[in-house]
Every structure is written in C-alpha cells, then in structure tokens.
C-alpha cells in the first residue's frame, strides 16, 4: 500500500505537467492543490464481554482531532465530460497512505457519477487492556510495551457529484457510498498467573470485515488571482464518513506448552464508527 501510494504521489505531481496531457488534446483543464486538515474520530465503545473486541481500541479521544494530515490533490478535466479527482494525504510519518481517487462522468452540467477507491490508516491502541482488566489473577499481558498497531480501512466507492460554479466561487458536493474493510491482522498476548507457574499465550487472527459506508463530501473553492493562464485560489473541504462494522477473529489459546491449543471463532457485535474531516489549502488551475 505504501509503495502504491508513493507511485501515485509521483504520478500526481508529474501527470498534470506531462506533454501528453497538454491543454486541448486530452485535458481541458488541470488543477493541483496543497492542503492541511484534521480528522476527528467518533466510535462506539461497547462494554467488555468475555471476548476481546478490537474496535473498542481504535484511537479516539476527547480532543478536537485525533489525526492531522497534509495532502496534495489533482483534479483533471478530460475531454468528453470525464474528470478525475486524486487526493493523497499523509500523517506526520509522511507515508502517503491516505488515498481518495475518483473517476467522474458528467452527463449533465450539474450532475455526475463517480466511482473510485478510498483508503486511510488509523491507530489501534492498548487492546491488551482488555486482558489486563478482565483476567483477574494474571499478569494480563506480560509485554510491557505500549501496544499499538495501524489498521488500514479500504473501500470501493460510488456516488453522485453535484458541481456548481458562480463567477469566482466553485462548489462541489459528492455523495459517496460503498463497501470497505479493515485490513486483517494478527496479535499475540502472553499471560502469566500471579504467584503461579501457569502461563498462557493467546493468538488473534482477524478476518476481513466488509461493511457498507456512507461518505458525503463538500468542497468549496474561491479564485483569488490570475497570473498568465493560471488561476490561484483557496479551497476548503469537509467530509463525513460513517460505517457500522464488527471485527471478527479466530483465537488460538495455548496453556502451559504449545501443544493442544484451544481454537475459537469469535463474532463480535457491530460498532458505529464515524469520522469528520476538515481541510483547507490552496489550488492552482490552468
């Protein structure tokens, strides 16, 4: 994913200036933008049951935003009512792994249809707290490190695009929906009885978790000044993403030795999850 995102980032920066896409032949218009944004996560935290529910540990806080990102984007207007919108963003690790790529067909001036892919990472923190809290009489996790992992949510989107322009003001609304999944992962928790020799190792292996999501976006742009054939402006964008998802897994429990493990398949309840994003920046259209 990281390599794919890097390639896309390079293409994003080079395609608009490529001669093959020179004005009038394939492309009618091009726009590149640079922006900075925040992402606020809201998720259900369900009561502990007998099984670990990883979705209780997706990073979420009372702060205004859990994540901040820097992004670049390109919007290409092709001949024949086709457009492409490519957004790539990164957290402070500068890994360009937030992608929002759409192909757009506009049969009417103010209505288009979109299809694309959407993916972004988020953090899952201290899921071992489940064992530390519920496994009384045990050192719930003998790994004393801060347990954190990254999960990538990826989906296919389709929807409507409603563009509107009035003089120097440009507004676009996207009403997207689709199917997304969290990347499967494996985790291990090792436990030891307090004042006892008994040891246990629990291995989790999550499965794909496809779920329907709804993802509306609104973009506003204002042309500010021109130089040559180019127009520079400012842009803001807001989006909301909501999904109901459960993460199920297989669990293998070893006790004392690695012989004769107990195997379970665990189905967890669905959690409501939503995120709100707001970003602002500059664009250049030519």
């Amino acid at each position: 994913m990281r390599h794919l995102a890097s390639i896309l980032l390079v293409l994003l920066l080079t395609i608009p200036s490529s001669p093959i896409f020179s004005q009038g032949r394939v492309l009618e218009k091009k726009q590149v933008a640079l922006w900075f944004g925040i992402r606020d996560i809201t998720r259900d935290s369900l009561a502990n049951t007998g099984d670990l529910d990883f979705l209780n540990y997706l990073h979420s806080s009372d702060d205004m935003s859990e994540y901040q990102y820097l992004g670049v984007s390109a919007h290409l207007w092709f001949r024949g009512n086709w457009e492409a919108d490519i957004k790539v963003a990164m957290y402070d690790d500068f890994a360009p792994n937030n992608l929002n790529i759409k192909a757009i067909w506009l049969p009417m001036k103010n209505l288009g249809f979109t299809a694309g892919i959407y993916t972004y990472p988020q953090l899952m923190n201290e899921f071992n707290m489940f064992h530390r809290l519920t496994d009384v009489g045990f050192f719930g996790d003998t790994d004393s490190n801060f347990r954190q992992r990254r999960v990538q949510e990826s989906g296919l989107t389709a929807g409507l695009m409603i563009p509107f322009s009035y003089r120097w003001l440009h507004a676009t609304a996207y009403i997207n929906g689709g199917v997304s999944t969290l990347s499967p992962f494996t985790e291990k928790v090792t436990q030891k009885m307090i004042n006892g020799n008994f040891k246990r190792e629990i291995r989790y292996s999550t499965s794909h978790s496809p779920a329907l999501f709804f993802f509306p976006e609104v973009e506003l742009g204002a042309d500010c000044f021109t130089f040559g054939n180019a127009m520079a402006g400012i842009r803001v964008r807001a989006s909301w993403y909501t999904v109901n998802r459960s993460v199920d897994y297989g669990r293998v429990t070893y006790e004392w030795t690695y012989a004769n493990p107990a195997r379970n398949e665990v189905d967890n309840p669905a959690h409501h999850f939503s995120k709100f994003e707001f970003d602002a920046g500059f664009y250049l259209t030519w």
């Binding site: 090792t190 040891k199 190792e201 070893y254 004392w256 030795t257 690695y258 012989a259």
Partner: peptide
Amino acid sequence: FVAYVPRYSEGFLYII
C-alpha cells in the same frame, strides 16, 4: 513438571 531452557527455548511457554 514442565521445563524452560533459558538459552535455547523459543517462545513464551514451557516445554514438556
């Protein structure tokens, strides 16, 4: 009894 060999055991758990 189960066993553990400090220099050679692999993994967290014991061996028989």
